[in-house]
Amino acid sequence: MPEHENSRKVRDARAGFQKHVPAVLNLLAIAAVWLMLTEGGIVPNYMLPSPVAVVKAFVSDFPTLMYHSGVSLAEAILGLLIGIVLAFLIAVLMDRFITCRRALYPVMVVTQTIPTVAIAPILVLWMGFGMAPKITLVVITTFFPIAVGLLDGFSGVDQDAVDLMRSMGAGRRQIFLQIKLPSALGQFFSGLKISASYSVVGAVVAEWLGGFRGLGVYMTRVRKAYSFDKMFAVIILIVIISLLLIAAVNLLRRAVMPWERVQENRS
């Protein structure tokens, strides 16, 4: 049994690895074309820096980049956490009280149509140049996908499962904890994944429009200095941080929903 278990793990790991081969090859191809275009002199360096220059900029500015990353990441994660709590409260209220749903849903949608670039300076005006306006902007951009995911999850619950619970004498709270919440977890995590990918960008955009620290501030500085190699380095860094956040969400999902893996293995 343990051996069988082990060989299955190895097989799963191999299959998981093979799944990523096309994407990795594709990325390598893009890097190769980029290298050819720039180092081959086809595109001038002031329009597109060569990957070598970008890597050099990344290495030479590494401590600064890490400092600013720490700030942006902190804003993103704090905003995300507050966003989760807020989304949760709103979704529960909207699920429980139909009037709440009618009152809040349109407002929620409106907050999503406001361009973040326009609202960021106003937030800075209200809250100063510190972290607060950045975190607020992250909250605004991240709570929506989570709230919608939770809400869809709550209302998509199997009515027969609710009937089963009622037939066993369960009250509203028990039905929520045992049926609604676990049934909504899948959609919650789908929403959280989208939100996680928005969160770093949200923080960076807010930093562009006022502040002294963070990757957005770094970006505006290097842009003013026309250091395109550093510009590209920071863009790639933001992509990497966002991907890491998404990976963290996926890990969390696997830990919280172990039954999903079972279903995967069967299909």
Binding site: D158, D160, A161, D163, L164, R166, S167, M168, G169, A170, Q178, I179, P182, S183, L185, M257, W259, Q263
Partner: peptide, 18 residues
């Protein structure tokens, strides 16, 4: 008054996450 008689509904309704 539910909760007095046990009832096996038409589907087996095992909760997939438990």
């Amino acid at each position: 008054q539910p909760g007095k008689i046990s009832y096996m509904l038409q589907k087996d309704l095992l909760l997939p996450y438990k």
